[in-house]
Design a binder for these strands. Structure first.
Length: 941
RNA sequence: GCAGAAGUGGUGGAAUUGGUAGACACGCUGGACUUAAAAUCCAGUGGACAGUAAUGUCCGUACGGGUUCAAGUCCCGUCUUCUGUACCA
């Protein structure tokens, strides 16, 4: 009997696929397209562990399935090879990031190839490749040369805005939050200097240079975007983050807030993911209200979602960073205010968040005038007001907002009640309904909705406010004080940023003497010998040449990691194009990604930025789709099962897990490779690895074994619980790995990796192999006889189920379906071509190597890939009769064999005619007979 | 605090979307083959009770109620666990 030699089979077919370009996608053919994409990996130094391929296997199954279904499938892969970790790794190992990145990619590729993925490698992209980032730089320039027209609700060339200024000035423009300080007319515009004009335009450009409060991470030596900060510390490394004012490039994603929100409704994405984007965009409607400051010409603008409570305002609170703080503070309060502002500035974001319960603040001494009642109300400063949200100032309504209430209580400020019949002495009443307004002049006796409207109308009439919509979404900081990223195609002429003409791109990364940024944020590119732009020669020259008339300094920052990943899915469509980021024909043919698989951790980063860039490229007519990813699936994370050796506190005793119950012990990570499936530790190996336990006392189980404690954690090198897919491929083969990862459970669910059940899946493949070799000595026995009805039934049952499973992405159940099919066909001794050939095609997406081998043994000399998917024929499943359970009052009494051809009434009649029914009824008349055809008959007596 | 998802044997997980709960696999038990082990194959495996047995009856999908001839599935309440998010005015 021929043996299932998976190693040679897998090697053979991987080679075959590579040589024959089996999975090359064709551009613009007369065939329906399907684009299946994985979130491309970050080639880290650690290589892949078994968790990484989960999504790749799922997408590969789907891609292969779609090929069988007659689609022209684009299923590419590449590398997100710019960014912080690659650089950190380079700093640690003292090598050039381009070298470590290349090495890491080579390792990744080797691992990926072993798993038999059907990627079209001819289309590979790398974000750190100059041929690629040339186009990232191009998009940056296009963004710079565009503005968002709120009238047309789309991005347009900046030239159109300049023409408006030249012909009618600024007065006619609808403004957003980032308004101009004052309007200007045509004559004024013409008199502006270049610097002044640029200052005006920078309020409109979709990427702009601005002095802004940023999240500065001293440890990493760079600024971070909001989505790169988790719980007040950096996502990478967990370092503290402080706020700092710096001149930075920003992306005006806020211009797209409403469209990014609206677009979500059309997408087939998991609801939790959409929710988290909605929350991140954070639309809230309310009113902006202006308060005059007594004795000053300045106004304080606040945003509120509760204009209906405007008569409940008893003070204003400004964020400590608010620009008017120093201006309006009275001399008597100056010292206290200064101290308070200083103290808050020194606290890191994390401290501020950790300590939300402590109420702090200080009085400015100034007063504001209530726009409707005319009352004087004190202006306070408090750090519960965030500079980054709304206007950085709030109108405090202590009776209607708990934070305002707490602040008022703490500083003994008045808490006027404006709600009828509601007690607000203990806590604020924060509900909108049910409540009726009181003590509020013309708002009295109105409910929330009516008062909301009336208050806004009154404010608008007086010119002190208007109804507005506020978004939480901030513009994204786009500069990083880092080396390993895309250089900005920007030089500075008299302090004004200028774009390098496109034909001179890419602007490639220069060599530098050290990659590490300085702690106060001087970027590594400042160390480059050659980093100035010669506008005459159109090339990079030495900074020493800056005196020369045509030479100007280049931007020293680089772009963030998400720059390259925001558009890579388009480059796969036409990766070699030198004239465009992708050709129009390719873009129109492939459209957008039909199926995108990746982790949910990118909800507010990559997945939001990509949508922003795609909408921009759409507005400017470069592409014809305005959303990048139609359907998205978040694969769950595969967790590691860490192993802990229990030891006494002093480290002198090692205790086996089951004996450690009532002893005081602590767990020490040990490498999972030293632990067997039943949790038994290879003590010798452990002590060789950790010699400090050489002389430790060892307490074993009564049976002499030493057991470890297991715990589920994230898979990571530092937890010694990493399982390498290479090892699984060596031991069981890639097909087993693929099937097993799918078999583990639903794709979207997180689950721990356990090798325990893998033998079941491996055994199944052996059985499958055997099925095709029945009877013959060494050979393959497949005959051309007519298949039995039973075998046909098994086949078509399987076709139907597997088809349904794939379409619903429940790959785990189709693996079970295959197991059942093979078991049944084995016991039927089915060896007919008409059964076994379709079965191969059915299995090919899941276990492609063994499928190819069996397919070729069938006598075919082409790949099984793309062979027509077997068609389900219902006639093979039709049974001549079915056994119905007959139940009385819901309890099954007996079963009855009935023909399927019978109608509902016929079944009922047949049941009633049966002697056993009559016996059960004992002469009574049934109240009701319920018949569900094909399922059940219930008689209610 | 808010939002979302989930809770089924010893374990991972099925259940045609309201129709015979526990498919399939792991593990475990017993058996076959073997000097032995591994591998392989066969049988059993939710619980309780009755029976020599085939089998039968009852209880069972976190907990408490409800709708229905019929509920793991739908509705109400409670508890628990994950996963986001958090002074958002």
């Amino acid at each position: 009997m021929s043996k299932y030699t998976f190693r040679s089979i897998e090697e053979k077919w991987q080679k075959y696929w590579a040589e024959n370009q089996t999975f090359a996608a064709k551009n613009a053919v007369d065939q329906p397209k399907f684009y299946v994409l994985d979130m491309f990996p970050y080639p880290s130094g650690a290589g892949l562990h078994v968790g990484h391929p989960l999504g790749y296997i799922a997408s590969d199954i789907y891609a292969r399935y779609k090929r069988h279904k007659g689609f022209n499938v684009l299923h590419p892969q590449g590398y997100d090879s710019f960014g912080l970790p690659a650089e950190q790794y380079a700093i640690q190992t003292g090598q050039h990031p381009s070298k470590t990145t290349r090495d890491n990619i080579a390792r990744y590729r080797e691992q990926l190839d072993r798993m038999g993925f059907s990627f079209d490698w001819a289309r590979e992209v790398r974000t750190s490749d100059p041929d690629y980032y040339r186009w990232t730089q191009w998009i940056f320039i296009e963004l710079y040369n565009s503005w968002y027209d709120p009238d047309l609700n789309q991005a347009r060339p900046i030239q159109a805005l300049i023409e408006i200024f030249e012909s009618e000035g600024s007065a006619g423009l609808k403004q957003t939050m980032d308004a101009l300080e004052s309007d200007f007319d045509v004559a004024q515009w013409k008199n502006f200097s270049d610097l002044e004009k640029e200052a005006v335009l920078s309020h409109f450009r979709l990427t702009y240079l601005a002095e802004s409060e940023v999240n500065w991470c001293p440890e990493l030596g760079t600024v971070l975007a909001n989505d790169e900060i988790v719980n007040g510390v950096s996502e990478r490394g967990g370092h503290p983050v402080v706020r700092k004012k710096m001149k930075q490039w920003s992306m005006r994603i806020s211009a797209y807030a409403q469209r990014l929100l609206d677009g979500l409704d059309q997408l087939d994405w998991p609801e939790p993911l959409k929710e988290s984007q909605r929350h991140w965009i954070g639309r809230s409607s309310g009113a902006s209200v202006c308060f005059d400051v007594a004795g000053h010409s300045d106004q304080i603008e606040v945003f509120t979602t509760r204009p209906d409570t405007i008569f409940g305002v008893s003070f204003l609170t400004l964020a400590p960073e608010h620009e008017l703080v120093s201006k309006i503070t009275t001399s008597a309060q100056a010292k206290a205010v200064e101290q308070y502002v200083e103290a808050t500035a020194q606290r890191s974001e994390r401290e501020r968040m950790a300590d939300v319960k402590t109420i702090s603040g200080v009085f400015t001494g100034a007063h504001a005038i209530h726009p409707l009642s005319g009352a004087e109300i004190p202006i306070w400063i408090g750090d519960y007001v965030l500079a980054g949200y709304g206007t950085g100032a709030v109108m405090a309504v202590p009776c209607g907002d708990q934070r305002d209430f707490d602040f008022a209580r703490h500083f003994d400020l008045p808490i006027p009640n404006i709600f009828q019949n509601i007690e607000v002495t203990q806590e604020a009443y924060t509900l909108k309904e049910p409540c009726v307004i009181d003590n509020s002049e013309f708002l009295n006796d109105l409910n929330y909705a009516k008062a909301f409207k009336a208050a806004i109308e009154a404010l608008e009439a007086k010119g002190y406010g208007k109804g507005t919509v506020n978004f939480r979404l901030r513009d994204a900081v786009f500069s990083r004080q880092r080396y390993w990223g895309e250089p900005f195609p920007v030089y500075y002429k008299n302090g004004v940023p200028r774009m390098i003409e496109f034909e001179h791109l890419p602007l490639t990364l220069p060599e530098v003497s050290a990659y590490l940024p300085t702690e106060d944020g001087d970027p590594p590119l400042g160390r480059a010998n050659l980093w100035a732009w010669d506008t005459a020669e159109c090339k990079v020259v030495s900074l020493d040449a800056v005196d020369h008339q045509s030479v100007f300094p280049l931007e020293l920052n680089t772009m963030p990691g998400w720059a390259g990943s925001s558009w890579y899915f388009f480059r796969y469509m036409d990766p070699k194009n030198q004239d465009e980021f992708a050709g129009k024909e390719a873009l129109d043919y492939w459209g957008n990604v039909d199926l995108y698989i990746g982790g949910s951790e990118h909800a507010t980063g990559h997945l939001l930025y990509s949508r922003f860039w795609v909408k921009f490229l759409f507005d400017r007519g470069f592409i014809s789709v305005d959303e990048p990813f139609n359907k998205l699936i978040n694969q769950g994370m595969i967790l590691g099962e860490s192993a802990f050796v229990q030891r006494s506190k002093d480290g002198k005793t090692l205790v086996s897990a089951a004996c450690a119950k009532d002893k005081e012990v602590q767990g020490v990570h040990c490498d999972v490779s030293m632990v067997s499936v039943n949790n038994e530790l290879d003590l010798e190996a452990f002590i060789a690895w950790r010699p400090e336990y050489q002389n430790a006392t060892i307490i074993k189980e009564p049976d002499g074994s030493f057991k470890v404690k297991r715990e589920v954690e994230k898979m990571s090198k530092s937890k010694f619980n990493v399982v390498n897919p290479d090892d699984i491929c060596d031991q069981y083969g890639a097909d087993t790995l693929r099937l097993y990862e799918m078999f583990l459970g639903p794709l979207e669910q997180s689950k721990p990796w356990s090798t325990a059940g893998i033998t079941g899946v491996h055994g199944f493949l052996k059985k499958l192999w055997k099925l095709y070799h029945t009877g013959a000595q060494d050979g393959f026995l497949v005959n051309d006889e007519a298949p039995s009805p039973e075998a046909l039934k098994v086949l078509h049952k399987t076709i139907k189920k597997v088809n349904e499973d794939i379409e619903q992405f429940s790959f785990n159940t189709s693996v079970s379906t295959f197991m059942i099919a093979v078991n049944e066909l084995t016991s039927l001794r089915a060896s007919q071509r008409a059964i076994l050939e379709p079965l191969i095609v059915l299995m090919a997406p899941y276990a492609p190597h063994i499928a190819e081998e069996l397919w070729s043994k069938m006598g075919h000399n082409s790949s099984v890939s793309g062979q027509p998917y077997p068609v389900f024929e219902p006639k093979y499943l039709v049974e001549s009769s079915k056994t119905y359970p007959i139940s009385f009052n819901g309890k099954t009494r007996f079963t009855l064999e009935l023909s399927l051809e019978l109608s509902k009434d016929d079944i009922e009649a047949a049941v009633m005619a049966d002697a056993r029914t009559q016996d059960q009824l004992k002469g009574r008349m049934p109240k009701k007979v319920i018949v569900v055809p094909g399922k059940i008959v219930n008689i209610v007596g």
